[in-house]
Design a protein around this nucleic acid. Structure first.
Lengths: 365, 365
DNA sequence: TTGAAAGCGCTAACAT
DNA sequence: ATGTTAGCGCTTTCAA
């Protein structure tokens, strides 16, 4: 089929081991003239050693597994992009990607396949509560790095952890609302608790507490992600917005779990006849570029995505050895608040939602 | 390291070929009792055959290469998702993904790596003009399917082609504007011509012609994609919007190359003090779910993404044999127009852009 | 400085 | 019905 090391050896008039030596940078073991002949043959035949065969021999394959809940979510696309380019540029690794839709069976199946493919390093972005299936993969020799979830305290896990400072991110967002004079605060999240979600809620509460607003700060728990199709989180945001519109008194400052939810929230608020930021202020967390394209522009807390991506790749590449004796989680400072137009002072007194028809979508053939 | 076929054979008290036979569905060649023993051993040892070794032997690896311009673009995320799930569910293939950033060198490097990894089937979503590097990959035994680009007429290519009916999509969008009474039409695109772009432009012109509006229908050629960072297309849209705002007379009905560009366009129009749809109407092409979250909701032509994804996977799996003698491109009807709020009748007379300050982004630490 | 040879884990003739 | 064996393309001792 394609040229093999044998062909090269034959063409260069040397043995395969010599060719293998030049392939593996052991050019010192041979005469310059031999090296030249081999290199010439490689070039002439346009030979590329089969990674397959190399792997089978060495047990190492330059492939990085990446597990994301959904590639359709712009945040994961963003992270995947950063992970890919760093892994490629610094380690020559390609990405073997898989979507899990937050389904444990799918996650496990993906791990099995990775193992079978000889992939030994994986980055997992998941919101699944427990990590047992990862541990078992680690047992089998995998290096796994998990995003946005801390190690279970006590149980020293061999899984690496990288995450943003979710607490601080939410606190920053909440303080921004407080600074604008909001006193009725809400945190909009989805059903189900994860480490990162609870950290954000804690940050939200902490900021409310500081401002003496704890009594009126509430957590709005939206629908489950499973119930919705694709735009999932945004849909939950939309649904939550409709709920907010009917509350009395209504919260005026809302921190969303993430930008996508915030975007859905804004759309829902609009549909319910409420105007952002006149009636309700919204701030997101993530820092998607899409936030800057919204109307109004979404104020959001920018997470250090690139830095986190690098840290994850580095950790995944370290190998099974190096995890610092005291494998503490790697946490990043939340970057900065990016101010746009979705936050303003709360309204003097609350208006009822305008008698605004729900917008309809027509479809024509 | 991990359990091998040898271990299973030993444990079951049979030879490796017997185990291999059960692995490959040749259970009929043995006694039920033997089969049972082998299966028991496999289960007990939690044995998964190494795809690596299988590949080396068979030359087939259940991996599908997918080349996209950028994973950050929601449209590609959407396509990747559909491709992945179909390939996984129907063929048990995983995705080896790569971003090219529309760079030929990166594309070629990716192909080389795929070859080295034993991957023989690739789907390419690219806007690069020529396909020569694909042809060479095909020469080496790859099955490649290219999205959104037709085969060069005459030169019968061995590369498969799948694309939406771009002409019809743009025509549909344009007619919608015409139906709303617009007479000054524009098509907003990016620099550089590709097959799909020119098909859209043709569709745009065709609709204008039908309506006798050809004289005032113009193509607005935005910046190059290379100049921008990540949100690329949206940024081009934004820049184009600023240009539109200063035109006199100004077009009132705009068809955007795609949804992302339309979203950027709407943001830019807003920044320039123009209101959509009161001053300018916009319609996109793609049908991203994000279009429904915009404010105003973006009217767009929904492309049959899932169907196209399936067709591409099917074609990629067919193997090198089947390409129908007259390998014609596979084209899909554009689905439907999804009406939202970004289109209205044109204004009676044009207002100058409001003295509206550009919105600013502040960043605080 | 170079080559011979033994596998890596599996498949598929070919034997028995 | 089951086992033996020769590779797939490469890496890596170990010899020459």
């Amino acid at each position: 089929m394609s040229t093999t090391i044998q062909d090269v050896a034959r063409k260069a008039g040397v043995s395969v081991s010599t060719v293998s030596n030049v392939l593996n940078g052991r050019a010192d073991r041979m005469r310059a003239e031999t090296l030249a002949r081999v290199e010439a043959a490689i070039a002439a035949l346009n030979f590329r050693p089969s990674k397959l065969a190399q792997q089978l021999k060495t047990g190492q394959t330059p492939l990085l597994g990446l597990l994301v809940p959904s590639m359709t979510n712009p945040m994961y696309g963003y992270m995947a992009r950063e992970i890919e380019s760093y892994a490629q540029e610094h380690f020559g690794f390609r990405l073997l990607i898989g979507s899990t839709y937050r389904d444990r069976a799918k996650e496990s199946a993906f791990f099995e396949d990775l193992l079978a493919h000889g992939v030994r390093r994986v980055i997992v972005i998941s919101s699944l509560a427990d990590e047992r299936h990862f541990e078992s993969a680690v047992e089998q020799g995998m290096v796994v790095v998990s995003y946005d979830r801390g190690a279970t305290p006590g149980k020293r896990s061999r899984v690496g952890h990288v995450m943003p400072d979710n607490f601080e991110a939410a606190r920053l967002a909440t303080r921004h609302l407080v600074a604008h004079g909001h006193t009725r605060l809400a945190f909009a999240t989805v059903a189900g608790m994860t480490m990162s979600r609870s950290a954000k809620i804690d940050g939200f509460h902490a900021a409310a507490e500081e401002a003496g607003l704890r009594a009126t700060a509430e957590v709005l728990d939206g629908g489950s992600l499973d119930e919705y199709g694709d735009a999932v989180i945004a849909e939950v945001g939309r649904a939550t917005a409709h709920r907010i519109a009917t509350m009395a008194p209504r919260p005026t400052g809302i921190v969303a779990l993430n930008d996508l939810m915030a975007i859905g929230l804004m759309a829902g608020l609009r549909e319910a006849g409420l105007e952002v930021p006149r009636d309700v202020s919204v701030v997101g967390i993530d820092g998607l570029y899409l936030a800057g394209l919204c109307n109004p522009g979404l104020t959001t807390v920018q997470l250090p995505v690139r830095e986190m991506a690098r840290a994850m790749v580095e950790r995944a590449m370290q190998g099974e050895h190096s995890p610092p004796a005291d494998e503490s989680d790697q946490v990043f400072a939340p970057a900065r608040l990016v101010e746009r137009e979705s936050v303003a002072a709360p309204p003097e007194r609350q208006r009822p939602p305008a008698a605004h028809p729900l917008r309809e979508e027509k479809t024509s053939p």
